[in-house]
Amino acid sequence: MPSEPKHVFASLPQMERGVAKVIGGDPKGNNFLYTNGKCVIIRNIENPAIADIYTEHAHQVTVAKYAPSGFYIASGDASGKIRIWDTTQKEHLLKYEYTPLSGMVKDIAWTEDSKRMAVVGDGREKFGAVFLWDSGSSVGEISGHCKLINSVDIRQKRPYRLVAGSDDTCASYSEGPPFKFKFTLREHSQFVNCVRFSPDGDRFVTAGADGQIFMYDGKTGEALGPLGGEKAHNGGIYAVSWSPDSSQLISASGDKTVKLWDVGAGTAVTTFNLGTDVTDQQLGCLWQNNHLLSISLAGYINYLDKNNPNRPIRTVKGHSKSIQCLTVHKSNGKSHIYSGSHDGHINILPVIKCCQSFLLACYS
């Protein structure tokens, strides 16, 4: 009798100190996704115990993003390969595969009609590419940088605009399609880690390792000023995410905080303090409907509470490295699963809860 999986035991994201982690959001608001090893993990945002895993990459997966239609996910890996696959079927059938870069893919962005996509990262001849998703044909270029590009985003309405942020401390602004370099934004003094347009397309922000966030006009690229005055955070900023109504955004920083910003006033409304240990550095964030998520260096997924910024509503913990051993222990009529991973962590889960929650374990 063939065996069938009953549950998916999803891992936490695999993190690296000083490296931003991109969290992708489902345009329908149901799921979020991230990467670990050669896997893309999709989790239900209301109940993260409900999970699915895509495992078809041959190399370490570095980023994954939903198409605005919600029907496809594009995931990129360390070899520069992009795989576009179906989200509506359990098998996640591959639709297209391309290799736009010769090095690691760092970020992916789609146009609002799900027809074009931008891919950035490392490479020899170029650090970014823009192409049609169904043919791979070029629809412009991403230029103006001399080092790897960390982040890219596309304005979600016409006329399209594209912004990219790089290790060369600059951001580039392009118009299209076909996308052509327009000018360079030079406000940052260190790496530009994240660039994001607001959902309404009126503004975009750049965030850097210098602890600063700069805001610009989404249509013209005109500078509108910094958030938070001289510095937005006391440490490097690794990710930003806008509210659905474009009036606020959150920023995740190496100073172990996440800040909620009123964009109109340019000031922080709330500061979420998430610990004092090195592993409490915040390297990724996502604003999905009413949920505010951040990811720490430890890989923990925090559900932030606006009413209690010093204590998350929920923190999803577990393994982020390969599991080396697994056993079931019975004591006083109760059974527990013990799992040990490569990073020295041991997790314990009562067997009685296995049908309702997850051990958060993944074999890499």
Score class of each variant (00 low, 15 high):
Met1Thr: 15
Pro5Ile: 14
Lys21Phe: 10
Gly24Thr: 05
Gly25Cys: 09
Lys28Thr: 10
Gly29Ile: 02
Asn31Gln: 06
Leu33Tyr: 01
Gly37Ile: 02
Ile42Ser: 05
Ala51Asn: 06
Gln60Lys: 11
Val63Asp: 00
Ala64Leu: 07
Ala74Glu: 05
Asp77Arg: 05
Arg83Ala: 09
Trp85Leu: 06
Gln89Lys: 11
His92Val: 05
Leu94Ile: 13
Lys95Arg: 15
Glu97Gln: 15
Gly103Asn: 09
Ala109Met: 10
Arg124Phe: 10
Leu132Cys: 07
Ser137Glu: 14
Ser138Leu: 14
Val139Phe: 10
Ser143His: 01
His145Thr: 06
Lys147His: 14
Val152Thr: 08
Ile154Met: 13
Arg155Met: 12
Leu162Pro: 04
Leu162Gln: 00
Gly165Phe: 06
Asp168Tyr: 08
Phe181Val: 06
Leu185Phe: 04
Arg186Ser: 15
Arg186Leu: 13
Phe191Asp: 13
Arg196Thr: 12
Phe197Met: 08
Phe204Trp: 09
Ala209Asn: 11
Gln212Val: 10
Phe214Asp: 03
Pro226Glu: 10
Ala232Met: 08
Asp245Leu: 07
Ile250Lys: 02
Ser251Arg: 08
Ala252Cys: 03
Ser253Pro: 06
Gly254Gln: 05
Asp255Val: 04
Lys259Cys: 02
Asp262His: 07
Thr271His: 03
Val278Glu: 14
Gln281Trp: 00
Cys285Gly: 01
Trp287Asp: 02
Gln288Thr: 06
Leu297Ile: 08
Asn308Leu: 09
Asn310Ile: 12
His319Gln: 10
His319Lys: 02
Ser322Gly: 14
Gln324Glu: 14
Leu326Trp: 13
His336Cys: 10
Ser339Cys: 08
Asp343Ser: 09
Ile348Asn: 07
Leu349Lys: 06
Cys354Pro: 00
Cys355Gln: 14
Tyr363Gly: 12
